[in-house]
């Protein structure tokens, strides 16, 4: 239908009263709303494509999965023999799983939160903050590189030391910008740095004290585990040689 001079671009009749067509104004308004709704719907379709693929389609697809016991037959009364056998199996398995947890004392270290938990007779007896590896990768001259991280896994207390003396490794000098001395040079030995006690867990790693108590709870060590004097004393007294240390 061709537009008359009295119509604007949206189809409104501007001189409607003059033409005696007052009633007709409501019809184009409806048309306008229809157009708006149509445009909004189209926009919604465009915007909904990616969420539809990623979120709606998988949810809808899953609705067709038969759930619960509908795929197999559930009975109200249990089979006595099968139940007995299952209960026995379960008891045996529970025993086996229980045996895996050490009955004596053991220590658990959380390197992410820098916290420790001490257990004895399967009971939690002490927890607190400690310091673990800083995750700094120190790059020296040539291909020399040291990564200061605490190893994860299960370890054993291999030895216990009182008044330990720290034999400084090469990285301790490199880190301080000092020349590396010969293997048994007196400058390598430091008293008091490791606190009053140390528990050796292998590969050069130890659980020991620290002069920097303010850093406890932060990842600042070169891989060893540092504890406060009080906590270290309890851990030292509780864990005999051979005890497990779990680090995660």
């Amino acid at each position: 239908m061709d537009k008359t001079d009295n119509e604007n671009t949206l189809g409104y009749i501007t001189d409607a009263p003059a033409l005696g067509l007052v009633e007709t104004e409501t019809v184009p308004k409806k048309k306008l709303w229809k157009k708006i709704v149509k445009v909004l719907l189209v926009i919604l379709i465009y915007l909904g494509f990616v969420p539809g693929i990623l979120l709606v389609a998988p949810k809808v697809s899953e609705l067709f999965i038969p759930v619960g016991s509908s795929g197999w037959h559930a009975s109200a009364s249990p089979d006595e023999n099968r139940m007995k056998s299952l209960n026995e199996d379960l008891k045996n398995l529970e025993k086996k799983v229980d045996k895996l947890t050490p009955g004596n004392a053991y220590l658990v270290i959380n390197t992410t939160e820098n916290r420790f938990a001490l257990y004895k007779n399967r009971q939690f007896i002490l927890g607190g903050i400690c310091s673990t590896g800083s995750y700094i990768s120190l790059e020296g001259e040539g291909n020399n590189k040291w990564v200061f991280k605490t190893p994860r896994g299960d370890f054993k207390v291999l030895g216990k030391l009182t008044k330990p003396v720290w034999r400084k490794p090469d990285w301790a000098f490199v880190e301080e910008g000092l020349p590396i001395p010969p293997a048994n040079h007196p400058s390598r030995y430091e008293k008091g740095t490791l606190g009053d006690y140390a528990l050796v867990i292998g590969n050069g790693y130890m659980i020991h004290g620290t002069m920097y108590q303010r850093f406890l709870g932060l990842p600042v060590t070169h891989g060893c585990i540092r504890m406060s004097d009080g906590d270290l004393k309890i851990v030292y007294d509780t864990l005999p040689v051979g005890s497990k240390v779990f680090i995660y």
Partner: peptide
Amino acid sequence: DHTTLSQDE
């Protein structure tokens, strides 16, 4: 499909 089990089992 042919297994008949109680909820306890």
